[in-house]
Design a protein around this nucleic acid. Structure first.
Length: 648
RNA sequence: GCUGCUAUGGCGCAGUCGGUAGCGCGCAUCCUUGGUAAGGAUGAGGUCACCGGUUCAAAUCCGGUUAGCAGCUCCA
């Protein structure tokens, strides 16, 4: 007998050799049916794992994230099995669970169109109905390779070969006639997958390497209940409605034109206004915090980029003007601001008394992104960033880095995005000798300084190896868009390489010349991307201080137009800038509906009563009719929203 | 850049087997002058993304280009 400690601390005795699934059965039929995954002494394990000694066991059901992954992973096997049944010549690559579902990569001469996906789904339903148990078995590497080779599974052979030198056996899972190389874990049988859907089919490189063959990736998602699947699909549909790329166009914030080109959005008056408001806010706040504004050229001779190293690293990603072979001078639009802003530092000799020197710029950059990369306002070829470079002594580095981080935190909190971001500490990859400049000692130093700062501040970060810039480590502040895709919103970088390249020095107290540390940072990110995230965050219903139209005055009949314009003047005189009057001869309900759909925060209704009393009837976006207020009361109300940058 | 899908008035869409275009919303004008999410009538608006091919005839079939979408790869 062995002693098994269960989730709630209860200890029970079982026969030696009992499986976790048996334990689940002993605890109740409901748990047995729902069990997806075991946690044995804190480690995830297959639910069929046999126990031979005392241990702690948790039985996890679909509610648990890891168990959900196990469930989805099994569904990916069902998908692979269905594809093999229908299209036997298809070769299998890999099929893991991911957030929100699973995928499987196939190499097939069949093009998996939506119609084919339906057929595959139908076959999957049969497999679920067959309720095939999943069984684990192990083979010696040589046997495993032979088995997969015999079946023509070249991708599996490649994977096994990589594992074979570890001296471990190779594990497989079998369900019916289908056998699949897999480490597991899996749920007990295919019959438990009650609700699933294949959501899309796209291309994906074998092993994520663009030099390799492109395979077909089928995405899907699986649930234990049909209602959960439906809710999930509905949630995805709802998310799509917030998509900045749709909403931003509908609300006339931006547009694109095919003959202008990819990644070159046109900011329409409303979108441009929001960006202007953000920009003024950022520049003022930076000035308050001791940053000095620069304005530097949008292009330079190639010579500049050669000094910085960007020419070697990123020439393909730059818009180069001229021909290196033919022309005496070749220019390039700037893809970053660093070496331009350094010239402000280099303008004269610097002493330690000049440091820290904080330079900021609202900087427009140009990057020739690959054609498939562009996405709405999130990934574009021309963008404007709240860019800054800070030169300081080693002693100042920690405080200054902290100051940069405080600034970004202030910005994120003001915009209401603070709760939505995550932190990534992007480090170099010592193996990658091509990308990174500098010595291991320099990297260790810069990274350890950053680590100390992040740990001191108690920042919860993930490490990204090989994600650093070529000249230094980064703290990347990440955010997910409405589709769950993550992008960098803000970055703060420590650099001790470029100062040397550009001969940037300062005279220290002892008279010796030293290179300053440089912090590269953005305070709010690039305006286009930040706007995109704000559109999605607020579904287009911006806080009053950012709304392109803050107040719409809606006269009830033509005879109220004069009073409406008079009110507009009063509001603007009181400092409320963006006020419109809707004089169309439509019914009140119609005008209110439009104002609501256009997400105008305040609508003021003026009729006989208001015109006579000098009041306004206030309708607040998403709160409805607020009743009657004096004009001064309303001004105080909206001014409070604007001044406090209220979010509602 | 790669794989797949898509492109018809400002927006959302229909258009069968190839026979030179329709609907709804919006827009304009007129009627209506109204009280918190859609009043009515009339009208204007399209080289069917662009270039080329097949055909007596192309929105429709074929090729290319451009742009959009999903994903991969990349992101100083």
């Amino acid at each position: 007998m062995i002693k098994v400690t269960l989730k709630d601390g209860v200890v029970r005795e079982y026969e030696n050799g009992v499986s976790v699934l048996d334990i689940a059965k002993s605890l109740g039929a409901g748990l047995y049916k729902a069990a997806c995954l075991a946690k044995i002494n804190g480690e995830n394990a297959d639910i069929r794992t046999v126990l031979n000694e005392d241990c702690e066991v948790s039985i996890l059901t679909f509610d648990d994230d890891d168990a959900k992954k196990t469930f989805n992973h099994t569904c990916s096997h069902v998908l692979a099995q269905a594809v093999k049944r229908l299209y036997p010549s298809t070769k299998l690559a890999i099929g893991p669970a991911v957030d929100g579902g699973f995928y499987y990569d196939f190499d097939s001469e069949i093009n998996f169109t939506p119609e084919i996906l339906e057929k595959i789904e139908a076959e999957m339903k049969k497999i679920v109905k067959e309720a095939l148990p999943l069984e684990r078995f192990e083979l010696e590497p040589a046997e495993a390779i032979a088995l997969m080779q015999e079946r023509g599974e070249i991708y599996k052979v490649e994977l096994i070969k990589e594992h074979s030198d570890k001296g471990e056996k190779i594990s497989f899972y079998r369900q019916g006639e289908f056998e699949e190389l897999c480490a597991g874990p899996h749920i007990p049988d295919t019959g438990r997958i009650k609700a699933f859907k294949l959501t899309s089919c796209t291309g994906a490189y074998w092993r994520g390497d663009s030099k390799n063959k492109m395979l077909q990736r089928i995405y899907g998602t699986a649930f234990t209940k049909a209602s959960d699947l439906e809710a999930h699909l509905n949630a995805l549909e709802e998310a799509k409605k917030r998509d900045h790329n749709k909403l931003g166009r509908d609300l006339e914030l931006f547009t694109t034109v095919d003959y202008i080109g990819q990644g070159l959005p046109i900011m329409l008056p409303k979108g441009a206004r929001i960006i202007q408001l953000l920009q003024r806010f950022v520049e003022d706040e930076e000035q308050r915090r001791g940053w000095l504004l620069t304005k530097t050229p949008l292009m330079a001779k190639s010579d500049l980029y050669k000094i910085s190293g960007h020419w070697d690293h990123y020439k393909d990603g730059m818009f180069v003007l001229g021909d290196e072979e033919k022309d005496d001078e070749v220019f390039a639009l700037r893809p970053m601001t660093c070496p331009f802003q350094y010239q402000a530092y280099l303008n004269r000799a610097r002493s330690y008394r000049d440091l820290p020197m904080r330079l900021n710029e609202t900087s427009t950059l140009f990057r020739n992104e690959a054609s498939g990369e562009m996405h709405g306002l999130i990934r574009v070829r021309q963008f404007t960033i709240s860019e800054g470079h800070l030169m300081c002594t080693p002693e100042q580095l920690e405080d200054e880095f902290r100051g940069c981080l405080e600034l970004t935190t202030f910005m994120l909190k003001t915009l209401g995005l603070y709760e939505d971001v995550s932190y990534r500490f992007s480090q170099w990859d010592p193996e990658d000798t091509e990308k990174y400049i500098g010595t291991p000692e320099q990297w260790d130093e810069a990274q350890s300084v950053m680590k100390t700062i992040l740990d001191d501040l108690g920042i919860n970060y993930k490490i990204g190896i090989g994600e650093a810039a070529f000249y230094g480590p980064k703290l990347d502040i990440q955010i997910k868009n409405v589709h769950g895709k993550e992008d960098t919103l803000i970055t703060i970088q420590i650099d001790q390489m470029l100062a040397e390249k550009f001969g940037m020095e300062y005279v220290d107290k002892d008279g010796s010349k030293k290179n300053p540390y440089i912090i590269h940072r953005t305070s709010i990110g690039c305006y286009e991307r930040t706007l995109a995230l704000l559109i999605e965050k607020y579904a287009g219903a911006f806080p009053v201080w950012l709304s392109p139209e803050q107040v719409r005055i809606t006269p009830i009949a033509d005879r109220h137009h004069d009073a409406a314009y008079e009110l507009k003047n009063k509001l603007q005189a009181a400092g409320i800038e963006r006020v419109e009057v809707d004089t169309r001869s439509e019914k009140l309900g119609y005008k209110l509906r439009e104002a609501q759909l256009e997400k105008v925060p305040y609508v003021l209704v003026i009729g006989d009563k208001e015109a006579e009393e000098g009041t306004v009837s206030v309708r607040k976006r998403s709160f409805g009719d607020q009743g009657s207020f004096s004009i001064d009361e309303f001004i105080a109300m909206i001014k409070k929203d604007i001044e406090t940058k209220a979010i509602w």
